[in-house]
Design a protein around this nucleic acid. Sequence first.
DNA 1: TGATAGGTTATCATATTTGATAGACACATC
DNA 2: GATGTGTCTATCAAATATGATAACCTATCA
Lengths: 90, 90
Amino acid sequence: MDNSKFLTALGGRIKALRSDQNISQQELAGVCDFEKANMSRIESGGTNPTILTLLKICLALKINLRDLMDHEELNCISEEDNSRSFKDTR
Amino acid sequence: MDNSKFLTALGGRIKALRSDQNISQQELAGVCDFEKANMSRIESGGTNPTILTLLKICLALKINLRDLMDHEELNCISEEDNSRSFKDTR
DNA sequence: TGATAGGTTATCATATTTGATAGACACATC
DNA sequence: GATGTGTCTATCAAATATGATAACCTATCA
């Protein structure tokens, strides 16, 4: 998964969560305290948002960052991929 | 939870996950393909990383973004944090 | 003593996000 | 036709992340 596909998927995830709550881009942007154009930019995957920007959006959607990230498209590591965490010497 | 506390908590979370795998900052930075000084900056909460930077770190740690965010300190939604449902739509 | 590893902080140039504004498009409604 | 809503794109200045280098500190070890 390349970066631009990830950003598109993340934007789609935000859009889906917003639509679930029947909120317009403009309204969500208003709660986040930025312009609707910037919200569109994020939802379309046209930017690589900082974690604080995502936090602001999550707060506006009344969800946690964990919930935003809890989406298969955004998580491609399998349990088997993480071998190191299973060979802790403790 | 203000922004700088969140960034400090996020950095601490990364550091904890790294330590769990007995990896040095330098080694993790190497896999991420950036300098150890930049990794230190992130772990100390001195910067507001983009989601792609966090993704790179997660891939290096062989974990998912969901796992990175699945930490109480980073998920503090409360009614006081967000009052959208109480806000009149004007 | 000296050398090495791990970590931190400072600084700088460059790249990119952000904030803001404007314009465009489709669609519905009056 | 005219108006309003929702979305998207482009553009710009300002703010900030990134990449890179250097210096410094502490602890460990030969």
